[in-house]
Design a protein around this nucleic acid. Sequence first.
RNA 1: GCGGGCGUGGUGAAACGGUAGACACGCCGGCUUUAGGUGCCGGUGGGCUUGGCCCGUGGGGGUUCGAAUCCCUCCGCCCGCACCA
Length: 826
Amino acid sequence: MPERRYNPSEIEPRWQRLWARERTWEVSNEPTLPGAPRASYVLEMLPYPSGEPHIGHLKNYALGDAIAHFHRRTGRRVLHPMGYDAFGLPAENHAIRTGVHPRRSTDDSIDAFQRAFRRWGVSIDWTRELATHEPSYYRWTQWIFLRMLERGLAYRKEAAVNWCPNDQTVLANEQVVDGRCERCGHEVEVRQLEQWFFRITDYAQRLLDDLDTIDWPEHVKAMQRNWIGRSEGAEVTFRCEELRLDYPVFTTRPDTLFGATFFVMAPEHPDVLRLAAGTAHEAAVHEYVNRALTESAELRGAADKPKTGVPLGRHVVNPVTGEPMPMYVADYVLMEYGTGAVMGVPAHDQRDWEFARAFELPIRPVVAAAGGEEPDVSGGAFVAHGESERLINSAEFSGLDAVAGREAIVARLERDGIGRAAVSFRLRDWLLSRQRYWGCPIPVVYCDGCGVVPVGDDQLPVRLPDIEDYQPRGRSPLAAAEDWVATTCPGCGAPARRETDTMDTFVDSSWYFLRYCDAHNDAAPWDPEVLRRWMPVDQYIGGVEHAILHLMYARFFVKALADMGLLDFQEPFRALFTQGMILGPDGQKMSKSRRNVISPAPIVERLGVDAARCYVLFIGPPDQDAAWSETSLEGVHRFLSRLWRLADALGERSPDAAVQPEAPTGDALALVRKANWAIDKVTGDMSGRFAFNTAIAAVMELVNEIYRHPEADIAARRFATATAASLLHPFAPHLGSEVYELLTGERVWEQPWPAADPGMLTAETFELVCQVNGKVRDRVQAATGASREALEALCLAAPGVTLHLDGREIVKVVVVPGKLVNVVVR
RNA sequence: GCGGGCGUGGUGAAACGGUAGACACGCCGGCUUUAGGUGCCGGUGGGCUUGGCCCGUGGGGGUUCGAAUCCCUCCGCCCGCACCA
């Protein structure tokens, strides 16, 4: 007779059909009544639909789904939706190559993702599904943009911006990595262009402060703090008497003001050419500025580049010493930070030191080390400035420590009206316009009479027209859609032209988590009352690659919308979990060129999705990268087969199978204890932490224990097996359901999470570890409730202990009840 | 340079300051099988004078009755930012 086998390809689709038919994972927006289950919003970052989902998606949804199932079974109403980040460059670049409309390739890919997620058995409420390229969604993206515009949080300005010549569009600062385009890797150029920005810098301080209120991984918060880059210091005004012009600079080191011996401006500074005009350096300055402005960001940004610059032929006055300081233009000064000009303090700033060396400028120390003697600045700047360093060469401030000196100098500047304490941020405004087709149209028109005019709310959405030619030519391909561009001014009715730039796709994904809550609202992007039931997201799960971009933008959106009275919370994601990557079998990042890519589809087909899901969770701590191992995957599949076979062998179904037998003895007792131990272990591993790897290991131990006790009475074996299925269900929902139903006839997802019986968590005896001077010398059985004295006596009598006590003096005995006794001897 | 993190068997990894290496892979052995595979059972950190002892969590030092875990220091690796005044 052929043995029956665990057959996931039969089991899994059967359960999936039932969940779809019964709409098991849908949740309503009904107000929660007092005493009703608490709401929980579990969300994975929405996928960008391109091709088919990869193994990283599987891990992402295996994690999120395990949390969602666990929350449901511990008595919470869970919102677990799905959507697609559907606008974006890859689909558009594909269209340029093939002529296939991005909508078509995107929709095909969305179909593939939907099929995969259903085949993976992820417990999603599909009624809330959305895609950011649908007019019903981007209508509200545009609506939010208009609210930003009304509040002055969206604005146009001309600025030096990052331009990717390959993708033919501008990029946000966050999308430039090492001077290269984050997407295509092409070197980024600097161009002076008028563009749309979001005023995220208005929120810099709040974005920084509120990091303390959210439960996010420390490294992600650190990256955001770093990116926001708050610095405390002072703004000091320097005057150019020759032209009667004042130039403020920002410095974090006002304590070194007496050491400022020169003054440097960025090549982009608007006054540079004007200052040099008429001096002997005029031509040289022109040449230098032109070169600096056309140089690639990567080249200019190199920190180890020798300092270059050109004198402007002008001077400013040091406001505290009265000395003239020569002015220079140099590309180590950035226009985007501070005021675009700096005071040069070569003795105490390494960059200024290098510049002073190159231009033979005086290097005057004004801060002394702890000993009080002048620091040696012949080899580099002296940068320490704590309470143990003292000011020197600083008139009446000499002798103060650097901290007190800084405060005193700022106070003096304030009194004289030439400076004040100031804070500066590294964060820049978010450049959101893109000269590309496949994105959300920016809902404004340009009118010769009225200027920039917002499209009326009742005219939304401004639909993205179909076009034939997607090739970008330095402007949006939309500009060629003449019929679409030509419109009338909403203000005066005169002929006007539509904005042809589209929005950065990060705008689309900065609010999608709000729309899920109220996905079918036609009158508003959401009903604030409905949002109150679900937001903020209780658990957000995704890759660390979004630590700055998406996660910072979404936080900004929520704060801005809250200020408009549209939301009543300040942070979108209460808790964040960043999953580790799955690497190829060679331990390298998966890539087509390395030919080490593992696709989920064939694995799911061969071993089932439960095995794949359990494997990616069992592989190691989920926040850690891990290499794919085919043999480990098969080991997990083997474990699932073992569980299935137990259920198959244990006979007819009965609701009693899940009930713990009363007063078990012998083998049965061992099994019941192990089952309760596993309940306790898995519950602990899933509450607060995400130790799914050890949770699955605990269920493996339980299954092993059942195999080891074939003589235990059937009730105990059925109880232990049903418990294993119940505990495994969040990770292997199909097999968990199958085994639980085979044994009990019940639906596991409708069962409350099992509770351990405290009476079964401890045996009447335990193994007492007996140590001498911290080394284990014996183990003896001891009664669970035994007194400290009794445990001490047992230990002192243990043969392994007496051997090592021989002739030595007992100094002390440490007793840890229920665990061990340590005898300290001399 | 600044910030965050990591270092434990052949491998992935476990371990509220309390038995280092759970669980799994791999490997070795046994049983079942005509055989292979599957399945089940057992073994598996290193060393030695092997009923037992010694060593062992990157190196060194410290706190403690007791340290992979806490502190100091050095070494190595990974990630993020980086001419941000």
